[in-house]
């Protein structure tokens, strides 16, 4: 039970064991370290897959109840095994590279999109001692490695050789880079107050969650995050009624599953970032830190899902206007106001 509440204590034991094993096998001690890092990453990959499964189930169930339906019910108790059934179906489903596609770019695109999300996820502080990769530039690292996802989407859209994919990919890219600007500037207020880019220190510096000092920043971050993940009400790139499925129209089976996985991993990363920067991360009374972290992230994820099933879709021009003409000036205003208050205090 002790390790269940403090999973961070397990790692040194594991590392010691692996180093011992490496020495016993006649390898350098470093081999144990590499193996330890790889094991942690495999664990995180499993965590990713599990989180996405839970999220997909939650999304379908919540969507159902919001629309006065009951959602998946048939497979397992209240449909809990539906996600596993869907995964198996996606794995055994036939998939092929379309004849008009640029074969290698088409094949690589899902890897780029997923890897960007996964690399961002590993730097999140999950608990007081549980940051898989602890960097003193954590915030810059996360926003920097998350961005190549756009390139993956462009690769997918262009290489498919399908006009819907091309339009969807271009729209996705334009939208994601447009909302990246207010998203990043809204983070600046938090960085200014805490005076550090280390996510762990930002969490520790929050006696009071920063949402109290940065309500506008939080709002801008939330709106931009929803747009960044291409979700409703900003899902123009995937608008089913116009573009069939946007940039992944030509993808099927396991490769489609990777895009799906990446979308939810990105959603998780942005929610976790919002929880870390604005809601106090793993801080909280009574429960272990990671419970608080997951609870706060879950609350924001619920908001994401709630938005999706409540709002109608924007038009493309409204979308660009919202980013460049409203959110970006507002984010700069927030930045200057924060600076002014900090200087005057």
């Amino acid at each position: 039970m002790r390790y269940l509440f403090a999973p961070a204590e397990l790692f040194p034991i594991l590392l010691e064991g692996l180093r011992g094993l490496a020495v016993w096998a006649g390898l350098p001690v470093m081999a144990g370290d590499w193996a330890g890092a790889a094991l942690v990453m495999f664990g995180l990959f499993a965590f990713c897959a599990l989180t996405v499964m839970v999220l997909v189930y939650a999304e379908r169930k919540i969507a159902g109840h919001m629309q006065a339906r009951i959602g998946p019910m048939r497979v397992g108790w209240h449909g809990v095994l539906q996600v596993i059934a869907d995964t198996i179906k996606l794995i055994v489903k036939e998939t092929w590279v379309p004849g008009s596609a640029d074969r290698w770019v088409y094949r690589c695109a899902p890897y780029v999109v997923f890897t960007a999300g996964f690399l961002a996820l590993i730097a999140l502080p999950l608990d007081r001692d549980l940051t898989p990769v602890h960097l003193n530039l954590g915030l810059i690292y996360i926003v920097a490695v998350g961005t190549p996802g756009v390139i993956g989407i462009l690769m997918a859209g262009w290489s498919s050789g399908n006009k819907y994919s091309l339009i969807g990919g271009m729209r996705s890219a334009a939208q994601m880079i447009s909302y990246e600007v207010p998203l990043l500037i809204s983070l600046m207020g938090v960085v200014m107050i805490s005076g550090t880019l280390d996510l762990h220190m930002i969490v520790e510096s929050q006696r009071v969650p920063y949402i109290i000092f940065q309500p506008l920043g939080f709002l801008i971050f939330l709106i931009s995050a929803v747009a960044e993940t291409n979700r409703n009400p900003f899902d123009i790139p995937e608008a089913e009624s116009e573009l069939t499925a946007g940039f992944h129209t030509e993808y099927g089976g396991i490769r489609f599953a990777y895009f799906f996985l990446a979308e939810y991993v990105n959603m998780f990363v942005l929610s976790a970032l919002a929880a870390t920067l604005f809601l106090g991360g793993w801080q909280g009374p009574w429960f272990p830190g990671w419970v608080w972290f997951l609870a706060k992230t879950g609350a924001i994820l619920f908001l994401f899902i709630w938005f999706r099933w409540t709002f109608p879709r924007f038009r493309a021009d409204q979308l660009m206007d919202l980013s460049w003409k409203i959110l970006t000036p507002l984010a700069f205003l927030n930045l200057l106001a924060t600076g002014l208050i900090l200087v005057l205090l």
């Binding site: 961070a8 790692f11 040194p12 590392l15 370290d33 590499w34 330890g36 890092a37 790889a38 942690v40 990453m41 995180l44 996964f118 690399l119 590993i122 549980l130 940051t131 898989p132 990769v133 602890h134 960097l135």
Partner: peptide, 13 residues
């Protein structure tokens, strides 16, 4: 977490 350096861990990831 200790063990490898942060940037080597990212390469492993």
């Amino acid at each position: 977490m200790e063990g490898l350096g942060a940037y080597s861990t990212i390469a492993v990831a």
